[in-house]
Amino acid sequence: MITVTERILSEDVLKHIYKCEGDGRRATLDSIAGVLQINQDEASTLVSKMAAHDLLQLQGEEFHLTEAGQNYALQVIRAHRLWERYLADETGFDEAQWHTQAEHHEHHLSPDEIEALSARLGHPTHDPHGDPIPSANGQYMPHGGQPLTSLEPGQYARVVHIEDEPPIVYAQLVAEGLYPDIELRLKEISAERVQFFVGETEHLLAPIVARNISVRPLSPEEVTELTPAEPLSSLKIGETAQVVRLSPACRGPERRRFMDLGILPGTVIKAEMVSPSGDPTAYLIRRSLIGLRKEQADQIYITRDVVSNRP
């Protein structure tokens, strides 16, 4: 039998080797011991046990996963990413906590629990960072993005993935307000800094940080965020505007609720009245009066150039 600690450690080894194989790095006894923060002897006991279970094999200095090991690794990754998706969609935890919590839960979910979680979330295909979630039989499609630093100045792109490791770099990207699905325009790139715009907001990042953002270049026709937009919360009582888009940060049930209420690109919205306690504000949406809190109205982007006049 194996202990829980051993299970956690071996699953971390599998993930490490899997990542190395994906990135073209070498997984060695050194790197394993380093990542797991254990000493060489412990690492070597661990890997030999795992080799006995036919999860990995040594080729020269390098460790490689067997097919069984690879499947296992994919299931751990699946659990991790599903848990992140769950935290993002259905809980009040903020993004800085997602990764750490998922690192814990990935080792404690049974296959049945993983399946139930996936079902509950509507079998999502991507985690909130844009990483693909492997399916139950280990299939997935890579996000296919390229590093932000590979764009040409002036080029538009959509963020497809934000690397959540190392945590310090990720925290900086979160603090900048960057997440998958937003569109950006690269202004300038030099050895010292990468300058780009998301809407009207300017961002400056060190290239080493910017490399953790993967993007898919957009052709001019594909760019939707060209229209200057402001949050619905900026609309004053009596003013009318048209929805341009919902913020990608608005996810899960909240996003679905908005769409059920008919808040979609093109919808005309009028700010009707505000609660005597200052919040929420009632908006006239498709002839219904809907109360929205300020944090919700912040996630709906509008333009005051109303195209259609339908009330």
């Binding site: 059920d260 209420l261 008919g262 949406i285 498709r286 002839r287 219904s288």
Partner: peptide, 8 residues
Amino acid sequence: TRLERNLN
């Protein structure tokens, strides 16, 4: 009175 949303 609010047909569009109801048609959804």
